[in-house]
Design a protein around this nucleic acid. Sequence first.
DNA 1: CTACCTCGAGCTCA
DNA 2: CTCGAGGTAG
Length: 671
Amino acid sequence: MVEKEVTERYEKLKKTVNHHRYLYYVLDNPQISDSAYDTLIHEIIEIEEKYPELVTPNSPTQRVGDVPLKEFKKIKHQVPQWSFDDIFDYEDLKKWEEKVLRMAEKENVADKSLSYCCELKIDGLKVILTYKKGQLVSAATRGDGEIGEDVTQNIRTIQSVPTELTEPMDLIAVGEIWLNKKELARINSEREKTGEQLFANTRNAAAGTIRQLDSKITASRKLDTFIYDIDYLVGGELPDSQEGELELLSKLGFKVNQDRKVCKNIEEIQKVYESWIKRKDRQDFGIDGLVIKVNSRQVQEALGYTAKSPRWGVAYKFPAEQVTTVVEDIVLQVGRTGVITPVAQLRPVLVAGSTVSRATLHNEDEIKRLDVRIGDTVILQKAGDVIPDIVEVVTSLRTGKEKPYQFPEFVSACGGDGRIERVPGQVAYRCVDKNSFAAQERKFYYFVSKKCFNMDGLGPKIIDALLENNLITDYADIFTLKRGDLLALPRFAEKSVDNILESVAKARKVTLARFIASLSIPQIGEETARDLSDKIGSIEKIRNMTEEELQSIEGVGPISSREIVEWFKDKKNIKTLDRLLAQVEIEKGEQNSKGGKLSGMSFVLTGTMEKYSRDEAKDIIRGLGGDVNESVSKNTTYVVAGENAGSKLEKAEKLGVKVLTESQFLDLVKV
DNA sequence: CTACCTCGAGCTCA
DNA sequence: CTCGAGGTAG
């Protein structure tokens, strides 16, 4: 039994330390010296060493985990993590507001005087913090919005994240993790000394730091946070506005960015936006725009969500950073289906946090539209902050030596005589010979990829080696690779070869949809392949169908059906197909169109089931011929509601759609 | 698209 | 140590 004085002292010490942590890291207003703070921490450590039973995971001494993790566990979000749609200018803003007003009118909430809460959009990574009875229990990355990664151990090391709230409520709070510019410079100068790669920007550094399995490394880099949203709250009152949420978050002990403004109309928003464009670079953290939210919670709820994003908010992005660089060359790339894409080779240039040395020019028409010539200086930006995009040519810098680009009539990478043709009805050119080496290479990459045969460990380089050594010329060859042949290649030793052979063997069984996709029929990707598989059910039927018959299938239009028929007319393709069919086993997985007991039914899943993950449940439904959709409509047959079902359940009730519990669902799909 | 982390494997040299 | 693959993030 620990003496009463000790526990009292211990609790007081913890409280004091936490208070000063808050003053220092959250309010940025320290009231005692670092050394005094350290002394307090030290006393806590001493007590804990003597009385280990006192230690809780949220003690200030436990911020750094001493055992590195093996891996990050997946965490399913209790509340789906949406992201806002982007807008880029005042026009977009106006359109968005009109939509909001129209919707509000329809939902009879328009009489509330509408206002908008404008916050900074911090350039970092999203984090979802879960508290039970006021104690931090988990922290997750966003992931795909449904499932993220458990990074609790790393988040604990961030001093501005409270491990205990000021009130014992159940809460899910959402915010952004970021790294300040000075800290990036410090980390990079250390990495320079040790010869490590430097981080390209604060966001990448923050992302890299969060993905460390060893939280000691995370702790050594001073990450920071801004928390901006409450997703869930029990044990307290949810404020009726976004601004109120921010205030509550502050009160609970979170670090909240104080630069927010409630605007009454979009003119005011625009003013805030323009003033931040001028000021954004002066901050310690990266800002990539404003987030505009309808302030009233009641109106937010009335507006609801589209399939993709909340209707009640948008991300108003700052204009993309533009730089100039020189087009050193224009080269042609041959894709999987023989389509030729011109790509500008650029003098490498740093833009929006990464070095860009190439940008797609899409097609001949785009080259003409831009009138881009080799040697031209061009303005470059990243579309949606991701994909490099040439905006325009700086014609005033022309010297006259620039070479206009002539789209060639022959492309050597197309193999054979190199002839190319314009695809009827499209802007793209493609190789007449659809099996050129370049196209073949791409097809093989795709064939083994996750979307198709999903052969683990067969990346592009391995495929290249196999192609170059003529070990594969046809898809079927992958399945008949010989151990000895592989071992003869450089960098292929026992272990690698065994792994390759094993993953090939494992991949022999495929679903029909994956099989169809793997053929690289032009226009037939993952989606259409699934439609074909669901509605037709066998490769033998597909190969004998006419264009008209194919077109009657939902999701297959005149262009795709033409491509399909043409593909199956080609003798080479047929030979490839038959050889491949002899090697693989297409999983029957219950035939869908007629045999499937769920055919014609449409399902929406919500909440968590005990027995199956969402993906497994989807596979089961599709396997039985049913459709799975993301949002509930009057065409939905059943909504399957697991634990913690959310808004989809409410919507189902509103529309009178039948709702199944997990056990009812299991009964229905039982074979 | 680019940057980052982590892992397994092969190669190289002590 | 280096390379390739695979995964994650924005």
